[in-house]
Design a protein around this nucleic acid. Structure first.
Lengths: 266, 266
DNA sequence: CAGTGGTCTAGACCACTGC
DNA sequence: CAGTGGTCTAGACCACTGA
């Protein structure tokens, strides 16, 4: 073992080494032939440590996304996931009328996209961040529409849209079912044609709802694309696309601004 | 206490409640008047639990970014940080010649930006993701330049640039010091004028180096903007901007693509 | 059912911090 | 130095899983 400070750290380092070099006896269990580590009791014996210490070591590896423990089954080596590229510049509504909720899918996957029937629509008071992006007062009423989107029957994206009440109140946007037209078409018919978008990208740890939807551990962040749509006067819609950070990267092209002038100051 | 399953969860819920409503006796200690929770021993008595159980509860709150424990001092309530907007569309080089490393700063803060003297330049073999974005073979030699950027003397951004060896080998890019000109100017002088960028945004948990630089806990992700610069033929540079996700959000504007045609299929 | 991880305890000692 | 959190132990019992 190495020169770290705490015993559980030493054990974690040793296990990581043995896992990545493959020199740890791993059982093949479970479907998908996932690799199972020795039990905690067994490791405790092997390292002359208490089970608590072993658990601390395994917790370190789990926080690094290297292993995963499942109650009643054991601890399993995780395989690296590869991220999928999602273009930020695709039109937010597509298949106008057929698929009417905003969506972002990886290239070539649009046709496989399956939005479940679970739509929600409710009225709420705008929290601080939503109010700021919509340019309204904190605590104003907004209509919230939520949809859970799956791709190949696996959780893909959580979409949450906010509309100022004075724009969306009394319209189809208040109903918890699919829209007949795209939301941008609907806004246009309300004399709020969308002319410009502002995108804001951030990331954070998932909340319990997101963890349940994505079936992800607490060690995987979510990436959030917040898209504010504006008509000629003001923001009319805020849509948040929430992805698993280990599954998605957001991509976009653009030309370089201009020929570089060696002496220029910007 | 509530209806959760585990005692430590109940305690965590209760503490969260009391912390957010302010009904927990908090000491004001430390500079900055940070609020200190009762000690673990004290909480153990109060909840009739062992200290281990209290520690589990506090771990839950720490993972949620609500509190922070400091060895030898105590557990402290964290105040919410607000994110700063960083425009994605600013030119990557600025103050041509004066500040020659690529940088992204929040609006109005460019002049406060202070890149420390710590530059690194080294040669390495391209890992899989870098090779892919640069369009070269995995394991090819690349030159890596790294800089640590501070804003108001606080850690702001880690910048890592990769150059294919056949382009940058033997040039100033190989030296671990500031460039005389901007890297894009230098590339242009090598007949690799940058004509287009591709941005790719992702997030993940920080590695130990990043945690140390940002002085962040293991519960705060990093947001990574990977920018590939291309000349007329091929990628010539990959720059990664690494930020604390709780400090930064990446922002950009764009016009809506076109007037919406109600019957259109895209 | 047997085997696994999840929770919990009581107590010990170490390492860090500020005075 | 006293007080705090950090590590570690030995053992107990619970809860989940698959056969």
């Amino acid at each position: 073992m190495t020169v770290a400070i705490a015993k559980y750290q030493d054990i974690a380092d040793d296990l990581r080494e043995r896992l990545t070099t493959g020199s740890l006896p791993l059982d093949q269990e479970a479907p998908g032939g996932q690799l199972k580590l020795p039990g905690e009791k067994e490791l405790a014996g092997e390292y002359s440590a208490s089970r608590s210490t072993i658990r601390l070591a395994l917790q370190v590896l789990a926080n690094q996304g290297l292993v995963e423990t499942r109650h009643g089954l054991g601890t399993f080596l995780l395989k690296r996931r590869t991220q999928v590229a999602v273009a930020m510049d695709q039109e937010e509504d597509w298949h106008g009328g057929q698929h009417a909720e905003t969506a972002l899918y990886p290239e070539g996957a649009r046709e496989r996209g399956q939005t479940t029937g679970r739509f929600q629509a409710e009225t709420m008071l705008a929290p601080q961040d939503v109010a700021e992006l919509l340019g309204i007062a904190e605590g104003s009423q907004v209509i919230l529409r939520r949809s859970l989107q799956y791709l190949d029957s696996k959780p893909w994206c959580l979409v949450v849209s906010y509309y100022p009440m004075d724009i969306a109140g009394g319209t189809d946007l208040e109903n918890a079912r699919r829209l007949d037209a795209s939301s941008s078409q609907l806004l246009a018919s309300l004399d709020h044609e969308v002319l410009e978008y502002t995108d804001s990208i951030s990331a954070r740890m998932p909340d319990p709802i997101e963890m349940r939807f994505f079936r992800s551990g607490s060690n995987i962040p979510v990436t959030i694309l917040s898209r504010t749509a504006q008509d000629r006067h003001r923001p009319v819609r805020l849509t948040r696309y929430i992805f698993r950070s280990d599954q998605v990267r957001l991509v976009r092209n653009r030309p370089a601004r201009r020929k570089l002038d060696p002496g220029a100051h910007y």
